[in-house]
Design a binder for these strands. Structure first.
Lengths: 142, 142
DNA sequence: CGTTTGTTTTGGATCATTCAAAATAACGGT
DNA sequence: ACCGTTATTTTGAATGATCCAAAACAAACG
């Protein structure tokens, strides 16, 4: 639960200064792999009560710019952040509670990466979001 | 350019009352197949200057609820609306100017609809967004 | 230990969207 | 054609998530 030296390494390797709030944000992201800025702020606040929400936004923006974190934006929901950046994976979002799970790219040779017609676009990335109902929501009466 | 009777039919068939603003929104959507509420409001305003932005939002929400329109929400951009609802298609978004093109589902039997691991979710839909640079943006110096 | 430069804080601004109440208009019946 | 019911539009304001900017502060390097 306490800030591991590993988080400092991560931050430093990304070319950023190591600060308490940044370490706290990294730690929060490690225990909550798909969290919004606000959720992360809650987590961070528990350990560093003086940290501002803006600092969390700052840290996240810096992380994303440095390639340390990635953001996803499920339709109609606040932006979520994750540390898993090295591979190309997708997401499965519960349309009821918003819970998010990682999904490795679909079977075989990433079929989703190649649209049938490109309309002349230089395609750079494919983003896939699966929507469904998670086991918990399916079990609960609504 | 003027409101066709067809738009009235569409609206009525959806179980909604036919009004000038709704017809104008449908017409605007027909000529701008991936437009935001605000862009549609601009269009509608040209013909019906008294129409409010709120009415456009209302009409769009009603259309979506009635299955007459669909909304998409490219990350970091305002929500877009389209009338093409009958098939399962995806989108190609220009990461520079935001231009959107439709993309039919990838070759063969909708491979994108089946994630490798479902984590127990009852998967209902798959949303695919391709990001790239459109021909115009590729040509312009920036 | 001091300087430099990056980071955090504070307070406010912005955009897209939504809410709510009152005014208005569409549609079906008469 | 007119009325009444009920949906729709308008108006004005509120909200939530995110961003901007200036001043206070702190990490890293020598």
């Amino acid at each position: 639960m306490t800030s591991t030296p590993a988080s400092a390494e991560l931050i430093r390797h990304a070319g950023l200064r190591v600060t308490d709030s940044r370490r706290a944000v990294v730690d929060a992201l490690e225990s909550h792999p798909h969290a919004s800025a606000d959720e992360l702020f809650q987590q961070v606040s528990a350990r560093l009560p003086q940290t501002s929400l803006q600092s969390v936004y700052n840290a996240l923006a810096d992380f994303v710019a440095a390639g340390l974190a990635r953001q996803i934006e499920p339709a109609g929901r606040p932006r979520l952040y994750e540390l898993r950046v090295s591979d190309n994976h997708h997401h499965l979002v519960c349309s009821q509670c918003g819970k998010v799970e990682d999904v490795d790219c679909v079977v075989g040779a990433a079929p989703c990466l190649h649209p049938s017609e490109t309309h002349g676009f230089a395609v750079e990335a494919a983003e896939v979001t699966f929507w469904g109902v998670c086991p918990d929501c399916a079990a609960s009466p609504l």
